[in-house]
């Protein structure tokens, strides 16, 4: 299953709930305000950094750039994708669960 998360972990528990209920081996794509969760060195960075073995994490590049974070370091192991990569992820997974 592909999970998308579009809320900042600083504002909502969407990312936490997603990581709590997603099965190991799932892909998690951070989009829109969800991309703040992909930054390293933040108070919430551990939520993703600690689960690197359980999930593959992706973040949508255009949403990072739009927020002035293009140069900011991401949590190690998070892969940046463009819109084409987003489409590929959806196509690769039978089910997509969009966490709002």
């Amino acid at each position: 299953m592909l999970h998308t998360v579009n809320k900042s972990p600083f504002e909502r528990n969407t990312l936490q709930s997603c990581l709590r209920l997603a099965q190991k081996g799932s892909a998690v794509l951070l989009i829109e305000d969800g991309v703040y969760g992909a930054l390293s060195g933040t108070a919430h960075a551990g939520e993703i950094a600690d689960r690197m073995d359980d999930f593959s994490f992706y973040v949508l590049g255009p949403d990072i750039a739009a927020r002035g974070l293009g140069e900011s370091p991401l949590i190690e192991g998070v892969q940046v994708v463009d819109y084409g990569g987003f489409v590929d992820l959806v196509a690769e997974h039978e089910v997509t669960n969009a966490w709002l």
């Binding site: 209920l21 089910v95 669960n97 709002l100």
Partner: peptide, 18 residues
Amino acid sequence: STEELREIMAQQDVVLSC
């Protein structure tokens, strides 16, 4: 439990969260 719910969710064809 969280564990049980995770299993049930993984068996779905369509998941709509909000």
